[in-house]
Simulated assay, not measured.
Amino acid sequence: MSEVDVKRRVVVAMSGGVDSSVTAALLKEQGHEVVGMTMQIWDYSQYTDKHGETFGSCCSLDDVYDARRVAEQLDIPFYVINFERQFKQQVIDRFCDDYLTGLTPNPCVLCNQVLKFELLMRKARELEAEFLATGHYARILPTEDGGYALHKGIDGDKDQSYFLFTLTKEQMALVRFPLGGMTKEEVRGHAARFHLRVAEKAESQDICFVPDGDYVRFLEEERQLDDCAGPIIHVAGQVLGQHQGYYRYTVGQRKGLGIGWSEPLYVVRIDAANKTVIVGEKQHLLCREMIVGSCRWSMEPPQRPFATNCRIRYRQHEQPAQVVPLTDGRVKVTFAIPQSGVTPGQAAVFYQGDRVLGGGWIQ
């Protein structure tokens, strides 16, 4: 499913970067009727970085401008869809709520799920497009039962299947990932071949609405956080110090604790209800079992235990695990080897080889 083999109308989600631009150029070269569509999701002009300068990032107004220029270069229709309200409600508010309830959110998964493959897909269908194409490094392949399954992109360093586990079978039938069978180097080569204006554009590595990486600043600008101070407590129960806001800490954090101890200490857990940060030595980060909820499956929802490989962070290699379905739709995951830094709020994605079986949110 990395290529569309019949000439059809295809909407390409154009972010203004190299990947989505090459996607649009390749599909047009194949003879398809290509329509470019960009999501305007965040007004960066109201925010500044720690130096007082306004910033741009992935999906910024500068990226909208770059996408428009590429569409003009390719001579394809182009639309900008304003999703700022939906992005605020579905992604930004959830991001803030998660931190304030002691979780560590993953907004990129939600943005793909809600903005791209629900709302933007709906807009594409309104334009009578048969498919929505994006620049993701992942593959959608047919299954023996006539359906579809999500697979890793062949470029292991760029594979983005982890962020796409929420895709339903129905959505996979309507989505194309032309870059899934390519390496990043090959994509750059195509960008140069097409003489795209963004061929040398750098990639964005940060959360689009926190491009300077200072999520604490962002939270404090978004929410009134006046009463979040509390104790820092060792797992053994000893109070080691005080913090000025539990939302400033994440599981696995070592630096910036501001406390002395005979061994290095790490954040083990956030107790938001009691405004408490629990710390411990490195071994206290190890976890053999976790509960995963709000699961999505590309197969039939499991009714019995099964063996799989599980990834709990984007850049982590999958780890062997046993998944046991629970009565409420959640699953219990038991790792063959205890894992460090299992973080509530992050995604857990289950693989069988290169195929994504499903995933959910670590509770």
Results as ranks from 00 to 15, higher is better:
36 G>E: 01
182 M>T: 05
236 A>G: 11
8 R>A: 15
96 C>E: 07
285 L>T: 01
263 E>G: 00
292 V>E: 07
105 P>K: 02
134 T>V: 09
211 P>E: 09
2 S>Y: 06
200 E>W: 02
183 T>N: 05
302 P>C: 12
302 P>A: 13
69 R>C: 11
88 K>I: 02
140 I>H: 00
262 S>I: 09
285 L>H: 03
196 L>I: 08
152 K>D: 06
122 R>V: 04
115 L>A: 03
237 G>V: 10
349 V>F: 10
32 H>A: 05
327 T>E: 13
190 H>Y: 15
176 R>N: 15
90 Q>G: 01
65 Y>G: 03
70 V>D: 00
221 E>S: 12
230 G>L: 05
129 A>F: 02
289 E>R: 15
275 K>W: 01
327 T>I: 05
319 Q>V: 09
275 K>E: 01
17 G>F: 04
218 F>D: 10
269 R>V: 01
4 V>E: 13
301 P>K: 06
317 H>I: 11
205 Q>I: 07
309 N>Q: 14
76 I>W: 01
261 W>F: 15
208 C>F: 15
157 D>I: 05
37 M>W: 04
111 C>N: 04
28 K>W: 03
107 P>C: 08
359 G>A: 03
355 R>A: 09
214 D>G: 07
209 F>I: 11
21 S>Y: 10
165 F>A: 08
303 Q>A: 13
46 Q>C: 03
